[in-house]
Design a protein around this nucleic acid. Structure first.
Lengths: 226, 226
DNA sequence: ATTGGGATACTGGTATGCAAGAATAGCGAT
DNA sequence: ATCGCTATTCTTGCATACCAGTATCCCAAT
């Protein structure tokens, strides 16, 4: 969920928000890192006010933790928050694919097939970065297919919470292949109207993160709260 | 750590936010009503800054529409927004009851039964206001039963979007009775672990709003956008 | 009466200064 | 060396002032 009015001139707040968002999600800013309004303002060349608004927006996304009179820090990972984010993301996405399996927008079919093809290419090339962005776009296409494009904003917001954590894990090529087969099977189930099948595939797809998250919790407990 | 996070003194922004939130949801402020930062600030006795932050928060909830250099207005009803809000609310709540039917927190059982009893009393007394607040608390209890208390925040945020609209409809006593029987059957299915049954009941429960919303769209089209 | 133009009073976005609370560093007493 | 107090310097929250657009209204020209 970046700025709402994309075409209109980007306000200072938007610029700062987008920049900080990227830096947090990419772990350029690590969990627990202190972020001072005045310092950020100085470094971006704006005043404190737009920085402040960007902070509140990031705090709403659970990416920052504003502690009045103390400091604002990049929100440490929280098992509760991650669990909730995954729950919400899963709930939305399951309803999305159920809707798509029942009555989808066939105008999106070709884009979905095209995305699968590009994903295969990315896997073949071992390009994890490309696959990641393709994965992002793929799930957006699913929402479009279900005629619920707005639902993707919620998915993305909750995905960010987890993606940020998964940056710590070196996902191997075989993991990519698993995700790709999930996507392929999901589309097969979707196009054949198999709602229940698509749901089970999606649940399995989302649950692939479980061991990764657990592993990170043990290897990087310093980035978790408390 | 003797953190004072729980104290949370109410900041000026919070006060203004809460007050405006109530006024918007209760339709004390009608869709399309203009809200000037400076006027609101004056009336509440604060400066523009906290008002501004409250505005952005309300805009994030799709309750306000901030139009730069023009005006900030109470967001008119939008069929798209309402449709999306209902979709999200439904998706979350379905996953919640599925979880609760599978493995619920039995410590909440007595509270759920107690709530049903109070709902019966409210229906018997024809007290729609009491029933409404009991309904709110009931759905919160469902989240607690599924061990997903945080999920209720999303449900509430999306419920507000619809509740505000439904304030325009005089819901009769028979409607209350229908909702109560839904709740009762839902609990029965939940306590017997009938996940699929609970889901169909919940879908029917949520779909009861369909005709009401359609009716309001025709009778109060002036409160809708465009 | 209608229409065009411009002054004016609004709007939200930004910059800056002040106030109150919290952390910290340093000094003195034990 | 350790503990405790205090002053300083952080932090964010709030208030005020200013800026750049937008809408409106009034008056003049047709």
């Amino acid at each position: 969920m970046t700025s709402t009015d994309t075409v209109e001139r980007a306000t200072s707040t938007d610029q700062i928000f987008d920049s900080l968002y990227d830096r947090i999600v990419s772990l350029d800013l690590l969990p627990g890192a202190k972020l001072s309004e005045s310092e950020v303002a100085k470094s971006y060349g704006f005043s404190r006010q737009p920085v402040r608004e960007a902070f509140t927006r990031l705090a709403n996304l659970n990416l920052l933790l504003i502690r009045p009179q103390r400091a604002t820090i990049v929100r440490p990972f929280s098992r509760d928050l991650i669990s909730n984010a995954r729950f919400v993301r899963g709930a939305i996405e399951i309803e999305v694919i159920r809707q798509a399996a029942t009555d989808r927008d066939r105008a999106v079919d070709t884009k979905l097939r095209q995305s699968l093809k590009e994903q295969r290419d990315a896997v073949a090339a071992g390009d994890t970065a490309a696959f990641h962005s393709l994965d992002y776009a793929f799930h957006r296409l699913l929402c479009a297919s279900a005629r619920r494009p707005a639902a993707f904003e919620l998915i993305a917001a909750n995905k960010a919470q987890v993606d940020r954590l998964c940056m710590l894990s070196l996902t191997g090529a075989e993991a990519m292949e698993d995700l790709l087969t999930d996507h392929t099977q999901l589309i097969d189930a979707l196009f054949s109207g198999d709602s229940a099948g698509a749901e089970t595939i999606l649940r399995r797809h989302l649950s692939r993160l479980d061991p990764i998250i657990d592993a990170i919790y043990t290897t990087h407990s310093g980035y978790f709260e408390e």
